[in-house]
Design a protein around this nucleic acid. Structure first.
Lengths: 266, 266
DNA sequence: CGCCTTCTTGAGGGTTCTCAAAGTGGGTGG
DNA sequence: CCACCCACTTTGAGAACCCTCAAGAAGGCG
């Protein structure tokens, strides 16, 4: 019945042509630095120290683990390209994704302080990560208190998002939850320079989104359809287009303050 | 009501003999220090610096806010006695409690780095808190990198709990969720020296527990009854008694690893 | 003793889940 | 280049879980 939508041309549209990211593509570390600077002031010396970090790039296919649950690691994973999800696996086999990581996110910054993590990290689509060893990161925090603060603050922003998700899962219905996720990702993408809040690419399948939202894939699909039917958003492949961000915010009861962007992302 | 002495607990790391400084009841700051030492090694100089912190005690009646949502504050709240809940208030009036704080928890440690928080803190029962100004805390982190690390790690432990709650809310039914909460609080209480995992005091009403679990009070009540009927746990007023912790763990699919107690709290 | 908060019980309805199967498009091997 | 397979999306029907509304017990406190 609903005709147009399905995943027609996932790969083609989005590639370089739509995002001709300037001759000077920001390196992964520059993206990470920009992320930190959103919330923490850093001196140029501190910035240089961060940019001087070394790491090795790793590509991971969709549906593969970047970090296995319960693994003890000695590096952190900076997402360079793609989409990663932190997840918790239950005994009954169900999977809950607890956080989404977009390029520029150091998705395992925690592990610098707590190398043995309980969660896993999964590539939701083909994803490139930069592995940065813990040791130099730890040294930075000792040498530069401002960097320690910045890392701490990054963890707090992460916790703030987790906290907001708890209230979404506990007290919102499927429709509001999905709308909230789209709003959040829109702001985060925009703020990373990967699109705008009303038009961005979210390369996750419906089953994966369901794992984020604590729903089944079937119900997520039906919920998504109601939002499309109401004209609140459209999807073309992995492209998400929001027609009226304020309306979607209203459905979601969304307030970007929890993202801890001092500008308020207005 | 303190059941046992200072945190003697499974770890043994924080044995009272290494710090024979108290004849009796641990002060609030000692409890906080013990909490930090569970996860982070500190030199005696660093410990002394923490114990030298000053603060003013405040008592808050049940159902009153200790920190209002969205308030900007210049102090952190160390729970001395009682029970506090971090919460998020939705537009529709529903409330979701995102974290429970027991004595020894510095429930607003985040605010040292991010003074304008989005959440509120509520006294679930009559609660005493010690307000510690941000400034000296911040100075500690600059002067002692190990303390900065300990604070960071404490935030990570908090985030790990949040993360686990997301998977509980998203992928577990009411029965498993409630069982999981009881298991978690049992371990945390035991480990703070406020009881044992099978017998402790949880001074929260059923409506408040429902706000933690993302349920209605009515459904929480029915769920609690099924656990009682099955002999998994008993309550007498606010006292919780678990007959078979392993069985309750099984119902909950509970694994204490996420609490980041290196001993594993086994 | 009476009021208030909390706990408990009942009945009905809505949201979301489970199971099952069909449609759609991309990728791959022949 | 076509046929097939596979991952993903969509649809349907029935059931389970949890919610809402409502009201009756049970305990604490003046």
């Amino acid at each position: 019945m609903r005709v147009t939508s399905p995943p027609s041309s996932p790969a083609g549209i989005l590639s370089q042509e739509s995002k001709p990211r300037m001759t000077n593509q920001p390196t992964a570390l520059e993206l990470f630095l920009a992320r930190l600077r959103l919330r923490s002031p850093l001196s140029s010396q501190e910035e240089d120290a961060i940019l001087a970090l070394k790491g090795s790039e790793v590509k991971t296919d969709a549906h593969r683990d970047i970090v296995r649950p319960g693994q003890t690691i000695d590096f952190a994973c900076l997402v360079v390209d793609g989409l990663a999800g932190r997840f918790d696996q239950l005994a009954n086999g169900h999977r809950q994704i607890t956080a989404l990581h977009i390029p520029g996110d150091m998705c395992d910054l925690h592990s610098v302080a707590v190398p043995h993590t309980g969660w896993g990290i999964e590539a939701l689509t083909k994803t490139t990560t930069l592995r940065v060893a813990h040791a130099p990161l730890r040294e930075l925090t000792i040498q530069f208190p401002a960097i320690a603060f910045a890392f701490w603050r990054d963890t707090i922003a992460d916790a703030s998002i987790l906290s907001k998700w708890i209230s979404a899962l506990g007290r919102r219905g499927a429709r509001a939850r999905l709308a909230h996720l789209i709003c959040e990702m829109g702001i985060r993408m925009e703020q990373t320079g990967l699109g705008t809040r009303t038009h961005f690419r979210l390369p996750a399948t419906q089953a994966q989104l369901a794992d984020v939202l604590g729903l089944t894939a079937v119900h997520l699909n039906r919920t998504l359809q109601t939002l499309r039917r109401d004209g609140a958003l459209f999807t073309e492949g992995f492209e998400v287009k929001v027609s009226d961000f304020n309306r979607l915010s209203g459905i979601a009861d969304f307030d970007p303050q929890y993202l801890l962007l001092e500008s308020g992302a207005k």
